[in-house]
Design a protein around this nucleic acid. Structure first.
Length: 264
DNA sequence: ACCATAGATCAGTTGCGCGA
DNA sequence: TCGCGCAACTGATCTATGGT
């Protein structure tokens, strides 16, 4: 049967066998009820006041309207990678309200809750929620990666993060990836930043500022702002210079401001 | 020693937007 | 409509840490 499914690829046959074997083990392990003590554990989460443990009765959050409609119609959304990602994203956002570092039992709890609520999302293989479990774990891992300003994440990075940087071995693709989320600093100097600041003030004086312009200028001055903060610029001065930091969209920058100060 | 879990990294896939 | 570039995601692998 396996050789039929994976004709011409012994490697894939072996991989599939391994997968099936793992699935058997997962069923016996992960189908156990979540132990109560798992909600109280970990020293790292105690450090962060905002983080706790997932409530035992964690409810699957509502999804965006169109996605919710699909789910209500029992459409197999997991077959569409786009919908699947959206489901994972919503679950991640709901979980992150409680903790940045869910335990394995908590991932299982949420994945199971999803399958219980929407049984048609069940995996065809294994225990029915293994792929959701894995996707959630990966999503958390990926989302935590850039959050260097978060105490909990930073402590974990210090604990597990590799000091070794293989910069010379980085592929162009990897460089491009890392650049994508990075700050655009190159090419900015005092005069160009001044121009951005002026443009921001013009937009701030408008009743309806152009969000695209604001976003772009704020992005361009991001690294410059960080430098100014590090060099000792006060919060008042920063807010005066970059008035959009007072708006809800600027809150993330304020968080960053705090992180810069804490690292000083 | 072994296992679970963490971050780091690389290579590949998929979906989307955009211009020709 | 098609091809291209990019972002987001996935799978795999490696190394490190902490608990048993």
């Amino acid at each position: 049967m396996i050789s039929y499914l994976f004709q011409g690829s012994f490697k894939k046959q072996a991989k599939f066998n391994k997968f099936v074997h793992e699935m058997k083990e997962v069923v016996t392990i992960t189908l156990e009820t979540v132990p109560a003590e798992s909600y109280q554990q970990t020293s790292t989460t105690e450090i962060n006041a905002t983080s706790g443990r997932l409530p035992s009765g964690f409810a699957i959050p509502p999804f965006p309207r169109d996605l919710q409609a699909k789910l209500d119609n029992k459409e197999p959304c997991q077959k569409s990678s786009k919908d699947r990602h959206r489901i994972i994203r919503v679950l991640h956002e709901a979980m992150i309200e409680h903790t940045m570092y869910p335990t394995n039992a908590e991932y299982v709890q949420v994945a199971k809750a999803l399958i219980v609520k929407y049984p048609f999302l069940k995996d065809l293989e294994g225990n029915g929620y293994h792929t959701w479990h894995q996707s959630l774990k990966r999503k958390f891992k990926a989302e935590r990666a850039p959050l260097v300003h978060d105490d909990e994440v930073r402590k974990s990075k210090e604990k597990f993060g590799h000091k070794k940087v293989r910069l010379s071995e980085q592929s162009p693709a990897a460089c491009r990836r890392s650049e994508s989320g990075a700050i655009a600093v190159i090419g900015e100097d005092a005069s160009s930043v001044e121009g951005h600041v002026n443009a921001l003030h013009i937009q701030y004086s408008k009743v309806r500022p152009d969000t695209l312009v604001v976003k772009d200028r704020m992005q361009r001055t991001f690294a410059w702002r960080r430098r100014e903060i590090r060099d000792g610029m006060t919060v008042e001065d920063i807010l005066k210079k970059y008035p959009f930091l007072k708006t809800p969209s600027g809150v993330s920058d304020i968080t960053d401001f705090k992180s810069v100060l804490s690292l000083k």
